[in-house]
Nucleic acid binder design. Structure first.
Lengths: 229, 229
DNA sequence: CGGCTAGTTGAGTTAGGTCAAGACTCGTGG
DNA sequence: CCACGAGTCTTGACCTAACTCAACTAGCCG
């Protein structure tokens, strides 16, 4: 827990707060505070009162629901500068879990919504972010609905590689998978075994190298890109 | 093309305009106009300038993209009271096509965005609608990613039955499928043949009756619900 | 009536799911 | 520091849901 120092915030130019004037941002910073979470820690759980929302400053978060049989269904991943929390809802219906040690900039939801009402630009920024998320989710529908298991795995690797690079357009040459095989499988609508086999095959074909259980090195990023298109 | 008569608009209590005060609504009605589209007509096409947005008053619309091989990928269906159009974008990247004869309430995008900037409640209403759409799209991810072809078809039937009933929570006892088998298959991430076979099986089992190529009668709605859960 | 598109149905094939066995990783305690 | 154990990952063998290909039927429009 620490007061905000927006000036050296690594996501200050990309998070929703970047849409604000410096006055507005100062106001926002007054209601926010940083907090860290360890890998695996729950940030909020389905059924909790929806009391907070947040910008992810560093790390990675998964949003998931559990069906009646207790099977996890991952709905989205949040990367740094992403926004987290359910606005306009009394209760949250998702779990948010830190996939690795993460730092959040937390805002009380009520205060945040008041600020949105007072500063249309903030609402507008949230709206644009939500539209972007919708686009991404539709891309996921496409990935799951029309591509075979290999393309799904490749797509996931590419999205992690992009998330791991600062610029978000380039691919990081190497990264750690933030998801277990099981989580990746759930997200891609396939199975642990299939994910594992496809990774094995990509390694055989020289596109990637596996380093330990989670490390991925893109040994031939172009081939990987080609395998996706 | 006709001037707006909001007073007897069938979706006045559900569309985004329902969030506005009567003054604000009057302002909105000044920039909007009704227009009808015939089944199959294009409302806008990918690459068009994004000059308009709209509320669907009656009918049904599909939003789709075409991949590099020209295969259609349906991204969403819009039902009456739904909102249509890409805000904050110079060009649209989707096709919008009328699935049956439809009536829209069209707004010039620039005017509409100006109104949003001036009336935060409108922005807020659009935001809530976008969040709802995101929830639905995530439900679709779940449907496609984890359920077998039978559950996917059942899910689609249930969603049409809900859309066809006025209250939106109940199931209409009978309706016309607004999609061809091919479109339904694309949406569900499966094939024409599989959709056809699953419909046949549901009919054999007495849950539905097919009337002509597109008509569906829910002869046992409860069993259908149970088959989905 | 004949041609066209959409839908159905059948037969054969296959991608990927399931089940099972073994290997690797990593945290904990002796 | 090593040994143990629980969880995670990999790999193999088998099986099935759904895809592909193909033939046929039902509506629909000129």
């Amino acid at each position: 827990m620490a007061l905000l120092g927006c000036d050296d915030c690594p996501v200050r130019d990309h998070a929703v707060c970047s849409a604000l004037s410096s006055d507005e941002r100062a106001e926002l910073s007054r209601i926010g505070q940083h907090r860290s979470f360890r890998r695996g820690e729950t940030i909020f759980a389905a059924g909790d009162d929806s009391i907070a929302c947040a910008t992810l400053v560093a790390g990675a978060i998964k949003l998931s629901q559990y069906d009646s049989e207790g099977v996890e269904r991952i709905q989205a991943l949040v990367h740094p500068s992403g926004f987290l929390g359910q606005l306009f809802a009394a209760e949250v219906d998702q779990h948010a879990t830190a996939l690795c040690d993460s730092r959040l900039c937390l805002f009380p939801r009520a205060d945040f919504e008041r600020l949105m009402a007072r500063h249309p630009r903030l609402t507008r920024a949230i709206l644009e972010r939500t539209l972007a998320e919708l686009r991404e989710t539709r891309a996921l529908v496409d990935l799951i609905g029309r591509r075979d298991s290999r393309a799904r795995v490749v797509g996931l690797l590419l999205s992690f590689a992009r998330a791991a690079s600062e610029s978000r357009c380039q691919l990081a040459p190497a990264f750690e998978m933030p998801l277990t095989r099981g989580e990746a499988a759930g997200l891609l609508g396939t199975t642990i075994e299939t994910v594992s086999r496809q990774l094995g095959r990509l390694e055989e074909e020289g596109m990637i190298r596996r380093e330990g259980a989670r490390g991925i090195v893109l040994s031939d990023p172009e081939a990987l890109r080609a395998a996706f298109a």
